[in-house]
Nucleic acid binder design. Structure first.
Lengths: 230, 230
DNA sequence: ACATCATATTGGTCTATGCCAATTTTAAGC
DNA sequence: GCTTAAAATTGGCATAGACCAATATGATGT
């Protein structure tokens, strides 16, 4: 019947959050521990969950602050760039290479094993803050993709205008995942931070596999939206 | 550059997992702590993440065991029951009441405030293990729903056959959430366990809002799948 | 053999503490 | 005033340990 002690503290801290507005600093961990007559460890566990839920943000040496829990929508079939209007968003190309398709990749893109696959890794940001990592895999060499993509920004737009590939169907698989050490570093979150992991297979106007994508989105900042009708 | 210490232990435990098969017991926390020359606290943090990822399962007094990380797919527009073929699944009705629509509910279902809304809360299980909580809200009293639903099992089938409501469009919003104390208890997971939270608005053949649903799915056991074409 | 009860084992929770790292604040020097 | 350096503050990370709760084990008695 009784709640875990850390959870009680979480509820009490939520009250503090409710009384203030985003940007306000809450009391220090040591002060909260003393005020609520508990250990700093327990307070930190409570705060950790509130950070994961996007209600708090903390910085070493500065303090812990009330955050704005708004979420960005990622829609099916619309690229990231189309969906983040109204924000100062940008996209950093982390890498664009041609690799040889392994067994799994070959199956996903329906190409022979060892054939050339183009891999594009991008970091998505909003107001300079990293929010998502997307790794797209395309069947073939796609010569000149670097330059064409640079000019347009949107991958799907580039595929359509330059390579005649019109993405017309897609299947997304959405699940939770915990940030691995390297992804956590790139995204600026703690190792183990919950993420939305999206795997997408997309097909062109002829029904051929055109893209296989893996996206990692900060769980506290994103919501995946899918609409369907028949 | 260096990895967090608990994360190193996580990788080492993953090696142990890789060498065995589901059901095998791994060494106790105290033994792992001694073997890896670290504290039990650090080992527990590593194990906690592996539990969240579905790689381990632990029981007080028994031990920690290698788990089978398979995930169940939840598809858009198909009910839970249609999707879990091959498993011994069942559904427990936690509650079926008629309530008055509040402001938010009224807006979501496009009905007047204070009008009657039917709320159906169900617990979804597989082989007796609770896996998901779904709360559906329907606009209107839906007399006899208890009996009709009992006979058919599937809500969408009941709506179609008995009430002439054919769900023909839906929008799902998928995000991560941490299990609150009561939901954690119902699902048999720890408080704070990552979940997939799905909000669905569904419309009938005339474009009228027919359902508003909130689902909580264990993040370690589910994957949301959405397919679209144009 | 079987059931019962005490004991040991194992995970669950919380505490107290130490030290490090990033940042802010204060003091010192010019 | 301004810059620079030292000190204090605050979160980050890991440790050791105490005690509890659930389960498994082994001893005991019949």
């Amino acid at each position: 019947m009784s709640l875990p002690k850390y959870y009680e503290q979480k509820l009490r801290i939520l009250e503090i959050i409710g009384e203030t507005s985003p940007g306000t600093m809450i009391p220090t961990e040591r002060e909260l521990a003393e005020r609520f007559d508990t250990s700093r460890t327990t307070i930190r566990k409570a705060i950790a969950e509130l950070v994961v839920e996007g209600r708090l943000a903390r910085t070493q040496g500065r303090g812990t602050f009330v955050a704005d829990p708004k979420k960005i929508h990622v829609r099916q079939m619309t690229s990231f760039s189309e969906d983040m209007t109204g924000y100062k968003t940008d996209s950093i190309v982390l890498g664009l290479e041609r690799i040889e398709a392994g067994g799994e990749m070959a199956a996903r893109l329906d190409v022979p094993v060892d054939s050339t696959v183009t891999r594009l890794r991008r970091l998505r940001r909003q107001d300079g803050e990293p929010l998502a990592i997307e790794a797209a895999h395309l069947p073939g060499p796609f010569p000149g993709l670097e330059i064409e993509l640079e000019a347009r920004g949107s991958l799907y737009e580039t595929l359509r205008e330059v390579y005649g590939i019109d993405i017309s169907a897609a299947e997304d698989h959405v699940e939770t995942a915990l940030a691995a050490a390297d992804d956590a570093e790139t995204l600026g979150v703690d190792t183990g931070h919950p993420l939305l992991q999206v795997h997408r297979t997309a097909w062109d106007q002829h029904g051929r596999a055109a893209e296989w994508m893996r996206g990692l989105y900060r769980g506290d900042r994103f919501r995946f939206v899918a609409r369907i009708s028949r």
